[in-house]
Amino acid sequence: MDDTTYTKGLYTATIGVRAIDGGQFQGLVSLARDDGEATDATIYEVEATSQNEDEALEEARALAHRILGEIEL
């Protein structure tokens, strides 16, 4: 699966999913700031777990939109 990214100004959020114990999945968001120097990324985890990868990806997408929506340029 290709990485899905969302951008706002200098910030890029990349969403993903990881498998966790018990056959559950958790959505992840990697938020990076590209200011021309070294790029550091912060990883955010969706609090809830999901039964399948698609649900976890939707949760990660929603989290990415919330995070980017809170950033003031």
Rank of each mutant, 00 (worst) to 15 (best):
E47I: 07
I67S: 04
L28R: 02
G27R: 00
E70D: 13
G23E: 12
D40Y: 14
E70H: 01
E37Y: 11
K8P: 04
D21P: 11
N52T: 04
H65D: 09
S30P: 10
I15Q: 00
A41D: 01
A56C: 09
L63W: 02
K8L: 07
I67T: 05
T7H: 12
L28N: 00
G9I: 05
Q24K: 12
G36Q: 06
R61P: 07
I71W: 03
R33D: 13
V46D: 01
T14E: 06
D40I: 09
Q26I: 00
E58Q: 04
I43V: 15
A62P: 11
T7D: 14
T5A: 12
E55T: 14
G69M: 05
D2R: 07
F25N: 06
I20M: 04
T42H: 09
H65E: 09
E59L: 15
L73C: 13
A41N: 05
D2E: 15
L73R: 11
R61M: 12
G23M: 07
Q51R: 05
D21W: 06
V17G: 01
M1I: 08
N52W: 04
A19C: 12
G16I: 00
H65I: 14
A41F: 01
G9A: 15
T5Y: 08
N52Y: 06
A41K: 14
A56D: 02
D2S: 12
D54W: 04
E53H: 04
G9L: 14
D21R: 07
I20Y: 11
L31W: 05
S30W: 07
T39W: 03
D35V: 11
G69L: 01
S50P: 06
G23S: 06
R61S: 06
A62K: 05
T14I: 14
Y44A: 05
R33E: 15
G16K: 00
Y6S: 13
V17L: 03
L73D: 06
A60C: 01
I15M: 08
E53F: 04
G27H: 01
Y6E: 15
Q26S: 00
L68I: 02
A64V: 08
T14N: 02
I71M: 07
I71V: 02
Y44D: 03
T14L: 02
Q24T: 11
A32C: 09
G36E: 02
Q24V: 08
R66G: 07
A56T: 00
E55Q: 06
T12W: 14
E47L: 03
L57D: 01
Y6F: 09
